[in-house]
C-alpha cells in the first residue's frame, strides 16, 4: 500500500531498538502493516540491530546449553501459526487489542459525534482510537507530549496537509494543530501520546472523568 507520510528516524530507531512505550509500538506496528515504504525502512533498522548483535562480545554459554535447548525444542508445542494478512479497517496488531470490527468498540462520546476509546497498554504513554464524523473538527486539545497519529479511515487534514489510510502524523508538543476530518468519509485514527492529553479548560473539566477511565 502506498503511503506518503511516514515515521521519523527517531521513532524507527526506537522501535527497532525496542525502547519505546507499548502505546507507540502499537501505532508503529499498525502503520508498518499498511506501508511498504516504512516496512522496508524498518527492516533496515533491524539490520543495524543485527549488525550490533553480530559484533557483540560473546559470553560463554553453559556446557549443556545446546542439548538443553534441543530438548526444549523437542518437548514443547510448536508455534506454526500461518501469518495472516491485514484485512478490514483495523490492522492485525490493533485487532489483538480491540477485536476485529468497529461494532465491538466501547466508545466514549466527546460531543458532536466525536468518539474515543482508550486502549489499555503498559504505562509510559497512552493510546486511543478516535472516531471523527466526516466534516467535523477533532476537539481542540493541547499536548504536553508528542502525539503520533495513524489514519485508518477517511482523510485527516491538519495545517494544510492531508493524511489518508496508513499515513502517520507526528505532532510536537508545541506545534500548532487544527485537525479536521474531511468531508466524504468518517475518519478513524489511532493516536499515541507520551503524556496525557490536556483538553482546553471547560472541556477538560468535563472530559476528565472519561479520559481517566
Amino acid at each position: 500500500m502506498k503511503t506518503t507520510h511516514h515515521l521519523n528516524e527517531q521513532l524507527q530507531m526506537g522501535y527497532a531498538a525496542g525502547v519505546l512505550p507499548e502505546a507507540f509500538n502499537l501505532v508503529i506496528a499498525s502503520h508498518l502493516c499498511l506501508s511498504d515504504e516504512s516496512r522496508a525502512t524498518q527492516c533496515c533498522y533491524d539490520a543495524v540491530g543485527g549488525a550490533v548483535l553480530d559484533k557483540c562480545e560473546k559470553e560463554r554459554m553453559s556446557v549443556d546449553a545446546l542439548s538443553a535447548t534441543l530438548h526444549q525444542i523437542k518437548t514443547c508445542a510448536c508455534d506454526t501459526s500461518a501469518p495472516k494478512i491485514c484485512t478490514g479497517v483495523f490492522p492485525e496488531p490493533l485487532q489483538g487489542y480491540i477485536g476485529e470490527n468497529l461494532e465491538s468498540i466501547h466508545w466514549h462520546s466527546m460531543g458532536k459525534g466525536v468518539r474515543q476509546a482508550n486502549i489499555p497498554t503498559a504505562k509510559g504513554a497512552c493510546v486511543r482510537l478516535l472516531f471523527v464524523p466526516a466534516g467535523q473538527a477533532v476537539p481542540d486539545h493541547g499536548r504536553q507530549g508528542t502525539e503520533v497519529t495513524l489514519v485508518l479511515q477517511g482523510i485527516y487534514a491538519d495545517m494544510g496537509e492531508r493524511y489518508s489510510r496508513g499515513d502517520i502524523k507526528i505532532t510536537a508538543p508545541d506545534a500548532p494543530s487544527q485537525p479536521v476530518a474531511e468531508n466524504g468519509q468518517d475518519c478513524i485514527c489511532l493516536s499515541a501520546t507520551d503524556a496525557p492529553l490536556k483538553f482546553h479548560r471547560w472541556l477538560h473539566r468535563f472530559l476528565h472523568p472519561l479520559l481517566k477511565r
Binding site: 525496542g18 507499548e22 506496528a29 499498525s30 508498518l32 501469518p83 496488531p93 503498559a122
Partner: peptide, 18 residues
C-alpha cells in the same frame, strides 16, 4: 532477541506488524 527482552525483562506486550 529484542522481542524476548521486552517480553521477559520489561514484561510488556510487543506489537509487531503482520
Amino acid at each position: 532477541a529484542r522481542n524476548r527482552r521486552i517480553d521477559v525483562f520489561r514484561r510488556q506486550n510487543r506489537p509487531e506488524p503482520t
